[in-house]
Design a protein around this nucleic acid. Structure first.
Ligand SMILES: [Zn+2]
Ligand SMILES: [Zn+2]
Ligand SMILES: [Zn+2]
Ligand SMILES: [Zn+2]
Lengths: 160, 160
DNA sequence: CCTGATACGTTATACTATAACTCGTTCATC
DNA sequence: GATGAACGAGTTATAGTATAACGTATCAGG
């Protein structure tokens, strides 16, 4: 399976699809995709990679929104709570969800050189872990699976 | 399988075993388990749970070691690099390894109420993920699997 | 309109982590 | 025994991440 994150592709389709899904998803829940929230999502969607909250904040501020951390954190938290973005704990950063609205569980592949971030299905993995955890009587609520390594493009030696 | 982290048990055995393993492991590698490093490990070993670097630092300072962050971070990094402790990214914290010297890959179960932290084997999970990642051409180097939820003791409603 | 709920902005502060430099000890080499 | 590299641990200072608490504007429902 080829990951868009690691391949050239028509990224506008990723962006447009995600934004449309976001609109309808949020509307269906009776919530509001306000300008600052929508803009935060657009910013995350610019690349298949993670972005720190302060980087998002700078961009929002440049667009005329607030200049203080809570502005970014609130927008990002909203996106995460509604499945439109993920929080990447290893990086203390956020990334747009690659399959919004799909009610999926994902594992993340993070390239340590080019910062590309792919989201691969992790439902099977999750079920295995849940089974293992249940043996100890532990009830899993949130699960994060994050791998750091090299994407296909960054594995070849660099031609100087 | 019962997890010591969630059960009453003779914890001195955990501590003594871990310290002995640490001593021999570090010696075998020609490194030094200096007083401050050893003390940091002892502090982490006090409970099956994670501890922030600054909490460890306070304890080290109280014992007469340095008062500045690098003192704690250096000791903790040393322990992590040598497999004597783990870094729990979800909590920005550190925990003593429950099976030092075993060259294992673990997943972490973190109770959000009592902060107990268990380490369950994740080699099978890891292999599944590695296979999945390889399909995209991604080469995994570091993998973290962390679950947040409720331990057996914290699932029962609290008797007020 | 009025009211409650939500969202956004602010200030201030807390928490986490690393850079860069100094000093002393250890230990192999001369 | 002197020399110098390697290491460990201490310092100051700063960078980076996150939240608490409060005031105001906006918006839906009655
Ligand atoms: Zn794309
Ligand atoms: Zn890459
Ligand atoms: Zn124990
Ligand atoms: Zn618990």
């Amino acid at each position: 399976m080829r990951e868009p994150a690691f391949e050239p592709h028509d990224h506008r389709r990723c962006v447009d699809g995600a934004l449309q899904t976001a609109e309808s998803l949020i509307a269906a829940r009776g919530l509001r995709l306000t300008p600052v929230r929508r803009r935060a999502l657009e910013i995350l969607l610019e690349r298949h990679g993670a972005m720190g909250a302060y980087e998002v904040l700078e961009r929002l501020a440049a667009d005329g929104y607030g200049h203080q951390p809570p502005v970014a954190y609130r927008a990002l938290d909203f996106l995460v709570e509604n499945g439109l973005a993920h929080r990447i704990r290893r990086l203390n950063a956020f990334a747009a969800c690659a399959h919004p609205g799909a009610d999926h569980h994902a594992a993340f592949l993070i390239c340590r050189l080019c910062n590309a971030l792919a989201e691969i299905p992790a439902d099977a993995l999750r079920n295995h872990l849940l089974a293992g955890a249940e043996e100890s009587g532990f009830a899993v609520e949130r699960l994060s699976i994050e791998a750091l390594g090299l994407c296909p493009n960054c594995q070849s030696p660099e031609p100087s």
